[in-house]
Amino acid sequence: MKTHRFLPVKKITSMHELTLGQALAYLEIELMGRKAQPAEPFAPSENIFLQNLRSRLQNMQHSHAELLLSTDVPKHECHSATPYLADNSDFFLAHILIRKGNSGPEPPFKHLNDCFNCFEIYCQVMQDYYHTCQEIITTNRVRGFQS
């Protein structure tokens, strides 16, 4: 896959080539009923990763999604050794794929300002997501992809 110059932070999906942000961009296309082909076919581990995200999204309870979309992170769930957003794909599934449009609850801005660990993870996912969206639009000519 084409890679971009990322900030030197821990990759959220260290086992996969495909990062969480990139995977979310492909899933968003799928949810729109379209198919976006990557520049190179996905590796088996990347397909498994995508499949896991699909099933997490399908099985996500409404109440769980609502909790993830709250404007603050649950108390005592973020520590410097285990930041709340580290490997928390559900948070990004909820904020990127479930919270449709710009009208839903805002992300936990205060927490992101307070917690550098979470902020860098968030930044990385958003960068990957945005650049992959751009790449898909450019290479697959998918129109109306982003709202």
Partner: peptide, 25 residues
């Protein structure tokens, strides 16, 4: 807090002020 976050996002990431409004969050 939102404004501080937007400032930090544009400073820290390679997302420019023209990219930031497209983010679904």
């Amino acid at each position: 807090e939102r404004d501080v976050h937007i400032f930090m996002l544009s400073l820290w990431s390679e997302l420019s002020p023209t990219h930031i409004p497209s983010l679904p969050t």
